[in-house]
Each structure stands twice: as C-alpha cells, then as structure tokens.
C-alpha cells in the first residue's frame, strides 16, 4: 500500500502555489496525498493524519511566522497518538536573514525530522521521503522478525 502524506500551509498563510506543486509531485510519485490547502491550523493537520492513518505530515510555511505556528507541533502529534509520524517543514520559515543551519536546528529541536530551506526543489523532498520511508520499513521488518510468531501487528 502506498504511504499516505498530509500536506498543507500552516497558520494564517495563504501561499498555496508551492504547496500545490509539492502535493502534485507527491501524487505523481505514487503517494496517497491528503492536501489540506492554505490557512490550516496545526490541529487540522493532526486530525487529518489520525483519520487517514498518515505516515508523514509535510508542513509548508512561507510568510515568516512558521516558527510561531509550528511550536509544539510534535507535542500535538504525541498527544494524539502519532509519536512516530514523519514530520517535515519547509518554506520561508523565519523573518530576516538568519543562517539556515541555525533555522534548521531550531525546527529539528522542535521535533521535525527534516526542515527544508527556501528554494528547495520537489526532487529534494521526494528523495528525502523515499530514504526515510525505506529506513523505517527496514526497521519495521527487523522488529517484525524479532517479534514472536503469530503476532500480526505491524
């Protein structure tokens, strides 16, 4: 079964174009995409991910307020029983000229698995997803082998 990915633009941000392109590219790559569009509150990402049993949430933010909007996002996921869900964030995440490695660190510390700078091409995000899912699937197989026979849980 294809992996399911939730996409959307977080907070009071209406920049939808990049997110649309990303969602289309994900669909073309064979993922099941649940596209929430612009102006999406953090809680809506979480609700959608629960209902669709999503494997990853890709958060876009382009208006410089991403840091405020994304605070506590991983905590919300943990609270909702999605502790292991893959979380990416990308776009113009902060205002002003700040070094990318500092910005990236800040979002990784918030619990995002990856953060992407402005100007990232969709190929970059697709390659990262493929690598992360492959790593997780390998880990999943290893733990299944370790599990007792008859235990059918994923």
């Amino acid at each position: 079964m294809p992996h399911t990915i939730v996409t959307g633009v977080i907070g009071a941000d209406t920049h939808i174009v990049g997110n649309r392109i990303l969602s289309m590219a994900l669909e073309d790559a064979g993922y099941r995409v649940v596209s929430l569009g612009a102006l999406t509150p953090a809680a809506d990402f979480i609700r959608a991910a629960i209902e669709t049993a999503a494997d990853a949430i890709l958060v876009s933010s382009l208006y410089g307020q991403g840091e405020l909007d994304c605070r506590g996002f991983r905590d919300l996921c943990i609270e909702a029983g999605l502790s292991d869900i893959l979380l990416y964030v990308g776009g113009n995440l902060v205002v002003g000229k700040q070094p990318w490695d500092v910005v990236e660190r800040r979002f990784l510390d918030m619990g995002f698995d990856r953060a992407f700078p402005p100007g990232t091409r969709v190929e970059g995000a697709l390659a990262a997803l493929a690598a992360d899912f492959a790593a997780r699937d390998a880990k999943g197989r290893a733990s299944m082998k370790a599990a007792l026979p008859g235990n059918g849980r994923r």
Binding site: M1, T4, R32, V34, I50, E51, T52, A53, A54
Partner: peptide, 9 residues
C-alpha cells in the same frame, strides 16, 4: 471511522 485506506485500528 477512518477514511478509505486510512485508520482501521
């Protein structure tokens, strides 16, 4: 409960 292909647990 669950969208098609979504949560089944």
């Amino acid at each position: 409960g669950g969208t098609n292909g979504g949560n089944s647990e």
